[in-house]
């Protein structure tokens, strides 16, 4: 299992934040607030070699001592990264399924699913390759 030192929230706490959301704007607001929960990644790691290819925005990914660090300069992606990390207390394959299920549950799947060109599938490809 991969450790995720950048977040303190677990999936339950995240889901709770979305519980009272009605309109899609509120869901996005929560997602953007979630982005703020991601502890910053060491700037020295935000280099090209750590960048995930296939994302329109910059996404960095670094694994060290079984600890995974991620960051992005796009806030929606950053919010999604928090959810990704919260799903990683499971083997990667299960984690990915859990992530997709969570997006459904939070009412974000329609807008932010993998098929959209937002780099989420590239991030999962990268995480899977860490196994």
């Amino acid at each position: 299992m991969i450790n995720t030192p950048q977040i303190e929230l677990d999936l339950e706490a995240i889901t709770l934040r979305f519980a009272d959301c009605g309109a899609w704007e509120e869901r996005y607001r929560q997602l953007l607030l979630l982005a703020k929960q991601l502890k910053p990644m060491d700037v020295s790691l935000k280099i090209e070699e750590k960048q995930v290819e296939g994302c329109e925005s910059e996404v960095w990914l670094h694994l060290h001592d079984n600890k995974l660090y991620v960051d992005s300069n796009a806030r929606i992606i950053k919010g999604l990264l928090v959810i990704v990390l919260a799903c990683l207390n499971k083997p990667t394959k299960e984690a990915k399924a859990l992530f997709n299920h969570t997006l459904q549950e939070l009412g974000l799947a329609h807008h932010l699913s993998e098929s959209r060109n937002n780099g989420i599938s590239a991030i999962w490809r990268e995480i899977s390759s860490l196994d």
Binding site: E56, S57, N73, A74, I76, I77, H111, L112, R116
Partner: peptide
């Protein structure tokens, strides 16, 4: 302060 990709999604 908004990444163009975030803007496009919205």
């Amino acid at each position: 302060n908004v990444h163009p990709q975030d803007a496009a999604t919205l």
